[in-house]
Structures are given as C-alpha cells and as structure tokens.
Design a protein around this nucleic acid. Structure first.
Length: 428
RNA sequence: GGCAGGUUGCCCGAGUGGCCAAAGGGAGCGGACUGUAAAUCCGCCGGCUCAGCCUACGUUGGUUCGAACCCAACACCUGCCA
C-alpha cells in the first residue's frame, strides 16, 4: 500500500496551481485518504507540446510524487475534432497528421512522469474507446446525459455563438468527448480526479456531470491558472513564436534564454509553478530577486532547472557554455572550436559559399541572417552603432569582413543591439 | 432608397496641386545608463546598387510640365433622413 504525502494539495495551493476546483475540502480529504487515480489530457494540436502544457505535466508529476497514480491521456480522438477556441474554427488535421502528433506528444509527456513503483504512470489514447463506438451508441449513451442548454452556456461555445462565424457541430460535440473520457477512465481505472488548464474548466465539469448522471459517482477536478506575463499578455510566446518543448522546434539555447529573460516581477510566480524546489528555497530566491535583481538569481535558477529537466543535463551544460561565450564580451577568439561551433549552432544562421575570395559586406550579412528585415534597416543600425561583428561594434556601413575576421576559419558572429545574435558560416 | 461625410505608412491621425516618403502620437528598433531588466534621456523608424533612384496616400482611368491633394467611375466604411 502506497503512502501518500498529506501536504500535496497545500503545496499546490501555495504554488498557485489551483485556479478553480470542485469542493476543496472534499478534494483534500480524498487526497489524504490514499492514492487517487487522476488524469490530464493532451490534445495533439501541433507536433510538440509547449511550455504552457508544461504547467499540466509538472502538476501531474507533483501529484505523482505525492503518491498518487497518474494517467496521461493523449487525444487521438479529441485531436481529430478540435476543442472550440473562442475566436475561430480550428482547421481539421488529417488522420495521418493527428496519428503522428499523438505519438510525438505521448513521447514528450512520458518524460515527465515516473513509470516505476506502485503508482507508476499509465498512458492512454482516447481513440481506443472512441473509435469503436457507433454514432448511435454515442448519442444514446452519452448524448442523452447532456443538456444543450448547459452546453451553450460554456464560455468558448458562447463566444462562438455570439460571433457571426458561429460554431460547427463537430466542435460543439467536443465537450461530450472529453466528458466521455473521464467516464471511461472512471470505469476502467477508477479515476476520480481530472486536472487541466483553466480554459478547460468547462470540459472538466462536463466529465464531472456525466459521471454523476451515468454512474452516480462523486469525482473531482481542478484547473491550473493561465500563466501570464506582467502586462497580462500571453505567456510562452516570444517575437519568434511559441516556446516548444521539442528541441528541433525551439532550440535548447532559445529555451534557456526564454527563462533567463523572465521579468523580475514574475520570477517568483514562475518558480512556484515550474520549479520542483522546496518552498523555503523558492522563497529565498524570491527574496534574492527583490534585493539584488541585477544578479538574476531567480531567472538563472529557473533557466537551469527547466533546461536540464526538458532537454537533459548535457544540453543544459552546452547552452550555459554557449550563453556565457556569446554574451561574455571579448573572449570570442579564445574559444576553442568545439565550444564555438556548439554555441553558434544554437543561433539563426546564414551560410555562404567560400568560393571567390571576397566576403559579402556586413550589411548584407546582417539582412541575410534575418537580424534585420532589410539592408536599409541594417545600414541604419550600423550608422546608429547597433550592429556588431564578433562582439565589436561595426563602425562603417560599407564594412566588409576579411578572412582574418573568420573565427576558426569559417564563422562570424553578428549581433543586433544587446541580445539578438546570429551566425554566418562559410562553407567549402 | 435619399442626403452628407470618409478611405493616408504597423496602428491612430494631420495634410487639399510643386517646399510630401508625407506633421504629430502610439507601437517597434538602436544608443546612453543598467542586468542579455524596468524607468528615463537621445536617435532611428518604405525599399535599393543610398548626396541619387524606385515604390507608396482604397481601386481604375483622366486633367496637368507636375497629383495623397483636381475630375470620373467603381469598391468599402460612417452619420442623418426614410
């Protein structure tokens, strides 16, 4: 018999991970009474999960560390339908695409859970019980428990009903499918708790109601908060786009830099949500950030822990070395080739053939690497003193790099302003 | 359906024949100061083979040596009347 930590829920509350929940006292009681089987679903809407999903994954892990039994659900079925967004209809992906993404998402989710011990994680795919079901069974056994009056009151659905575009029947049905998932896991695995993002609250309660009606069962749910930036804008997006967990979609370097650049005012919040450090340790980091913000101890701790967690210790070490090299001014020439190549590998780059003797002008390279949208913009930046070659400010807008500028005979490091870097590789 | 007004650069908005790549503000970018922050100050902010040229003021056509600006048609938007 597995013993459970009795303070799991209090820890989650302290971390601000419970934005909404069913009866909190009842939830606390069942979590304290013994191992609870809980689930959280991940729909394959892209080839990779992103750091928003990380909130869910880590919350699952926290509950598992507390002695409870996790079920990670991948939405092979729900991914074919699409959860209604308040703004617009989702593009239906092909079955092949969804099947491919399901496997990718499954592999990613598995890395954050433990498959050892009494409460080893289980992974399920809702396509397994949804696909075999006939439309008639679905309508008779599931559909009859749902009141349309309540369905249209849900936030995302309501927003779409107000809009001119409306909502199609496929997306409207989504909450039934997610409700059915919870019912199915309740029946098969005795699952009595579902977690999800707060935007999922309507779908979480759909399952709750269904289990109550169909089985008379008493189950629980809580939603994690929507993480935001200080200005209220969406978390996890940068000018270059979403921060993905897949290293080929967001480089470990970019991932590390994202956390390192977290706002001072949000570091504490992020640490509570994403770090596995103990409360006392996090509070110490919060204090450090308040007292010595320039040291960015909180940001460093966040970046270190999460990069190592998501990309592994080897990648973490590499990106820390890369960040130090690229931002540590003046020492570029002394870097050994392996470290330099690894650092530059993380950056956007342009490749030019060695061929004829002359290298292109700096202005052209700045535009070519995407650091500037046009040569005019690059030229202006040079005049303004905002462009750098190998960490040296470029003084002349007509400057042309020479062979002597090439680091280890083939690399150039370009920078725009203080923190936008790009590499040029001379091949051949 | 009738009358009136409008459509300008990423957004808001001035401009009513040459001095207009187009005032001002916002957003964005760079510099200084910092911490690869924030605030503040300064500069930049269509493109290019950059003292010049090209493209652009809803669309198309016209008047003129010359049009964001005048004329015509079309499209869309807003107010008032029905």
């Amino acid at each position: 018999m597995t013993t459970v930590r009795t303070d799991v829920l209090d820890d989650l509350l302290w971390r601000g991970l419970v934005a909404q929940s069913t009866d909190l006292a009842a939830l606390r009681a069942v979590l304290a009474a013994g191992p609870v089987t809980y689930y959280c679903g991940f729909d394959p809407t892209a080839p990779s999960l992103h750091i928003g999903n990380l909130v869910q994954l880590l919350t699952m892990r926290r509950l598992q560390d507390g002695g409870h039994h996790p079920i990670a659900l991948v939405g092979g079925a729900t991914g074919l339908i699409g959860d209604p967004k308040p703004t617009a209809e989702r593009t239906l992906q092909t079955r092949e695409t969804v099947a491919d993404w399901v496997e990718r998402v499954r592999a990613q989710a598995e890395r954050f859970l433990s498959f050892e011990g009494d409460n080893a994680a289980t992974v399920v795919n809702n396509l397994d019980w949804t696909e075999p079901m006939s439309a008639l069974d679905f309508l008779r056994d599931i559909g009859r428990h749902f009141r349309v009056n309540k369905m249209i009151a849900k936030e995302a659905v309501g927003a779409r009903l107000q809009s001119e575009a409306g909502i199609n029947y496929t997306e409207f049905s989504y909450q039934l499918l997610q409700g059915m998932d919870f019912l199915e896991l309740y029946r098969r695995h005795g699952c009595t708790l579902q977690t999800g993002g707060s935007d999922q609250w309507g779908n979480l309660t759909a399952g709750l109601d269904l289990i109550h009606r169909a089985e008379g069962g008493e189950v629980h749910a809580f939603a994690t908060p929507l993480v935001t930036k200080a200005d209220g804008s969406k978390f996890g997006k940068t000018e270059t786009g979403t921060i993905w967990l897949d290293a080929s979609m967001t480089s470990p370097y970019a991932f590390y830099q994202f956390w390192l650049n977290a706002e001072d005012s949000q570091v504490g919040t992020y640490l509570r949500i994403f770090s596995f450090r103990e409360r006392a340790e996090i509070e110490a980091l919060e204090a450090a950030t308040r007292e010595r913000p320039a040291a960015r101890e909180g940001q460093r701790a966040l970046a270190d822990e999460l990069t190592a967690l998501v990309h592994g210790p080897a990648e973490h070490a590499a990106v820390v070395a890369a960040s130090l090299a690229l931002f540590g001014r003046g020492s570029l020439e002394e870097l050994d080739e392996r470290t330099l190549a690894a650092s530059l590998a993380e950056l956007p780059r342009a490749t030019i053939p060695a061929g004829s003797g002359e290298l292109p002008p700096v202005v052209e390279l700045l535009a070519e690497t995407g650091l500037f949208p046009s040569r005019s913009a690059a030229r202006r930046a040079v005049v303004e003193g905002g462009a750098y070659l190998n960490n040296q400010r470029v003084a002349d807008e007509a400057a042309v790099p020479t062979k002597a500028d090439l680091l280890h005979g083939r690399w150039l490091l370009l920078r725009r302003g203080k923190r936008h870097l790009a590499a040029v590789e001379v091949t051949g």
